[in-house]
């Protein structure tokens, strides 16, 4: 049987498809847009515009590298505040032009650094959640690899929350969790089982809406099937959501998160 820890390992594999792989295979004519108009351009979060079939959309994604050099460039997918602020800028732009938003979540967490604190990492994450809860366009969020802590949630407040079957979504990495609760980071495996972080766990907890199947060996081993199912679900979801009035869309999104932990 595949354990929660096995999935953590799969979710972190360097060969695992990253946000840009999904973007290239699901959308057409992706154009990346840069910068938060305030401080800089964070390469651990990419954003831009593209077509989903004929429909213009805005895409946000946490991007890990596919090799050591890329990972350094992408800061291992750990955004700084300017990354979240770039995401927010592009999401507000999407709202202005009535474009649905699709976000890809894949991060070990928001970057814990001096500069990140100096520039308000907490504020950036909080602001994104507040703003996303009120955006007047459909938002589809997909956890494709590691969805860890507030760094993941900062781009994951949406109308549909999707997880790849081998993705994990958690309050903290199992290592961090183990070092806090068991005072021993090497108990990460045990932590992973108890934390309820797999797609199936999150579906049972009513946190996510949909699990996209993938091979036990990882999405890269049958990527076209993964893409086909995911793309279909995104399209169906957006079509359903576009039938709602803006008020209904926002109220449903509010109630979705309102029910969590009630």
């Amino acid at each position: 049987m595949i354990t929660a820890w096995d999935r953590v390992t799969l979710a972190r594999e360097i060969e695992r498809p990253k946000a840009l792989d999904y973007i290239e295979n699901i959308f057409d004519d992706f154009m990346e847009l840069h910068g938060d108009r305030n401080f800089g351009d964070d390469k651990s979060i990419i954003g831009g515009i593209a077509y989903l079939d004929a429909m213009p959309v805005t895409i946000i994604g946490e991007q890990k590298g596919k090799n050591a050099r890329e990972n350094i460039e992408r800061n291992f997918g750990m955004p700084n505040p300017e990354g979240y602020r770039k995401a927010l800028r592009l999401m507000k732009q999407a709202e202005k032009f009535g474009r649905p938003i699709i976000t890809f979540i894949d991060t070990p967490g928001a970057y814990p650094g001096i500069g990140a604190e100096e520039r308000g990492q907490g504020e950036a994450i909080a602001r994104n959640m507040l703003e996303m809860s009120q955006l007047k366009v459909p938002i589809i969020c997909i956890v494709i690899g590691e969805g860890s802590s507030g760094g993941a949630l900062a781009i994951a407040v949406g109308d549909r929350i999707i997880m790849l079957e081998n993705a994990v979504y958690s309050i903290l990495s199992p290592e961090g969790f183990a070092s806090i609760l068991y005072k021993d980071a090497s108990k990460a495996k045990e932590a992973a089982e108890n934390m309820k972080i797999t797609a199936k766990d999150l579906k049972n907890l009513n946190i996510i809406d949909k699990i996209i199947k993938e091979p036990e060996s990882g999405a890269q081993n049958d990527f076209s099937a993964v893409i086909a199912e995911l793309k279909q679900y995104i399209i169906t979801s957006i079509n359903d959501l576009e039938k709602l009035s803006k008020e209904e869309l926002i109220e449903n999104r509010y109630q979705k998160f309102r029910m969590m932990g009630k």
């Binding site: 507040l130 802590s149 994951a156 309050i171 972080i197 999150l202 946190i207 509010y254 998160f257």
Partner: peptide, 25 residues
């Protein structure tokens, strides 16, 4: 966030922020 409630604790961040968005509106 409270570790022992895992992902449910994490979601309280989104819930409270969304409520504050309404408050702001």
């Amino acid at each position: 966030a409270r570790m022992q409630e895992g992902i449910v604790s994490l979601m309280q961040m989104a819930k409270t922020s969304a409520a504050l968005a309404k408050h702001n509106e």
